[in-house]
Write a protein that binds this DNA or RNA. Structure first.
Lengths: 154, 154
DNA sequence: CGCCAGTAGTTCAAATTTGAAGGAAGTGGT
DNA sequence: ACCACTTCCTTCAAATTTGAACTACTGGCG
């Protein structure tokens, strides 16, 4: 309203700080709900994300450090998480051939089956709770913003 | 590239699932970094958000339940958080006059001062790490998407 | 009034997360 | 070969988070 516009401009001139608060709160609600639904199938969202990264990786394995980077986990947090998944039989630790300091986390056959079992329900949840809210070129616009954010953070 | 377009369409047709992953990962990086910076001033992001909500509230007070809703916290989590802030002298618990079951969390004078001390640095961080990435009408578009997400979750 | 289902918060134990410290192995200079 | 430095990951204690009881109070109904 304060800035003259040519043509039909946006109805709402969102105040930047409100956008941040809305982003923060909505993100919390979204991940909380998705996590709650996934947990009914016996898996936390972080568990799932680890499985997903391993699933996508060459030979279903990744170096611990690489995994920690991608998950935005501290080393100790990743160590704990992998420990949990290992006890559950979904992941195995292997010493890395190239570098005896390092370890690789590898999806077991059981982990593979668990992932395949979990995926459909989780995909539907993300679909329903997140993707459905994206209209028109929202996906592209959102991706562009996230890319810019990621670049700032790098 | 796979879909014929009339005129100069968007360069990138982001695949929905990738958008979700990017959103999830970038959000994690962003909040992790903002939290790290805030902690150098001796306050967690959740502490700050509680202070902010109380700051904005009538008489700087809110019912525990209301606060829990807005923070997306479980009752026990809020109870713990308020306990921490209370020990630090930033917040006080008062029995609610209208309903003897309930409590209100109220900002103390010291809490007020703490918030005013924290705010500038945090504002700069959010500015630098989040708001700067928003170009053109990104803020409005993002707000619209978040609104739609929130409505789905309600 | 007296009972009772429902509401508001707290508490407790178990699970997770953090951050500092440690142990094992690579790397590079001498 | 040796030593200092770095990298990779784990471990440990303390802080936080979760989820299931548990306590205190309300409001409505007989």
């Amino acid at each position: 309203m304060t800035v003259p516009e040519a043509g039909p401009g946006p109805e709402t001139a969102a105040r930047p700080w409100d956008v941040w608060q809305l982003f923060f709160e909505t993100t919390a609600r979204l991940t909380t709900e998705i996590e709650a639904r996934l947990k009914e199938h016996g898996c936390s969202l972080m568990d799932y994300q680890v499985l997903l990264l391993l699933w996508n990786a060459e030979d279903h394995r990744l170096r611990m450090g690489e995994l920690a980077q991608r998950m935005v986990f501290s080393p100790s947090r990743l160590s704990y998480q992998i420990g949990v998944l290992e006890k559950r039989g979904w992941v195995r630790r292997r010493r890395c051939p190239q570098d005896a300091r390092g370890l690789e986390a590898e999806l077991t056959d059981e982990g593979l089956r668990a992932f395949r079992r979990l995926r459909p329900a989780h995909a539907r949840d993300v679909e329903e709770l997140f993707l459905r809210a994206l209209e028109g070129d929202d996906a592209d616009r959102l991706a562009a913003v996230m890319d810019r954010l990621a670049r700032t953070l790098a």
